[in-house]
């Protein structure tokens, strides 16, 4: 499923200033099956853009087209994986995973459970199927959340810094698993991050965003071959060139003068 973001503006009413412009004239096309990272410093509106694509918020002007239809509200076609843990605490892992299936398919209970168990087996979480979310580690919670969305066959996955709370080893492991999953299921993924390394590792296309007002500064096609190696020269060069141009750097320079 492709996504088209057309002339999006988003502003909030604010007490300090009359209006706070979070996104200004944002245009973006995301192709079917593409993995796109929205990269930028905090306050650049990357999460807002993701929420607009999800239909959880409405733009002030402009429109978003997902698979030929205008986005007007949340839908099972566009699953969101949040930064905060979002498993339902009163449901076991297995029941969390089957939640979406029960919402969107007419499958029997047995079919749903079989499917969920198959997926949990693949990512090595089957032994936790009867555990509750509070019994899992942060990384496991996010893996379950991802499976929950994948199983639902959401053609679009919208991920809002899902790995930012994890330690580096777990983060790298989950990034690799995400790539595997994406290659198998061919979803379209929009991944919000402020971590340049993460963006270069994951993305087909990096959308570099700037702030005040939130906008798209640059779109970088990442041509690196997969699986990507962090220690390769191309990887490091690309990272450096992005870091140099990040809005964050400019602001820091100004504040120093």
């Amino acid at each position: 499923m492709s996504i088209e973001v057309k002339n999006i503006n988003k502003s909030f009413e604010s007490k300090k200033v009359d209006q706070l412009t979070v996104l200004k004239d944002v245009n973006l096309t995301i192709d079917d099956g593409e993995l796109v990272c929205l990269l930028g410093p905090s306050g650049c509106g990357k999460t807002t853009l993701l929420r607009l694509i999800a239909g959880l918020d409405q733009p002030t002007s402009g429109e978003i087209i997902a698979n030929g239809e205008k986005v007007s509200g949340p839908s099972g076609d566009r699953a969101v994986i949040f930064q905060q843990y979002s498993l339902f605490p009163w449901l076991t892992v297995l029941k969390n995973v089957t939640f979406g299936l029960e919402m969107t398919t007419g499958n029997s209970k047995e079919e749903n459970i079989a499917l969920a168990e198959e997926y949990l087996e693949r990512v090595g979480l089957i032994e936790f199927k009867d555990s509750y979310p509070h019994e899992l580690s942060g990384g496991m919670k996010q893996r379950v959340a991802i499976i929950r969305s994948l199983l639902n066959h959401s053609p679009i996955l919208l991920m809002d810094e899902p790995f930012s709370a994890l330690d580096m080893i777990n983060r790298h492991k989950l990034q690799e698993q995400l790539i595997e999953v994406w290659q198998r299921f061919e979803n379209t993924i929009v991944f919000v991050t402020h971590d340049v390394d993460e963006a270069v590792f994951l993305a087909d296309k990096i959308v570099v965003m700037g702030r005040k007002p939130g906008r798209i500064d640059k779109i970088i096609e990442v041509g690196l071959e997969r699986p990507r190696k962090r220690e390769s020269k191309e990887f490091i060069l690309l990272m450096e060139s992005i870091v140099e141009n990040l809005d964050m750097g400019e602001l820091d320079k100004k504040s120093l003068e």
Partner: peptide, 21 residues
Amino acid sequence: KVLIESAQTLGAGDRDVLKRI
């Protein structure tokens, strides 16, 4: 709110959100 929004993006309608979340 995160739980409600998660349910919505998993395809839950208003009634499901009320009943199940």
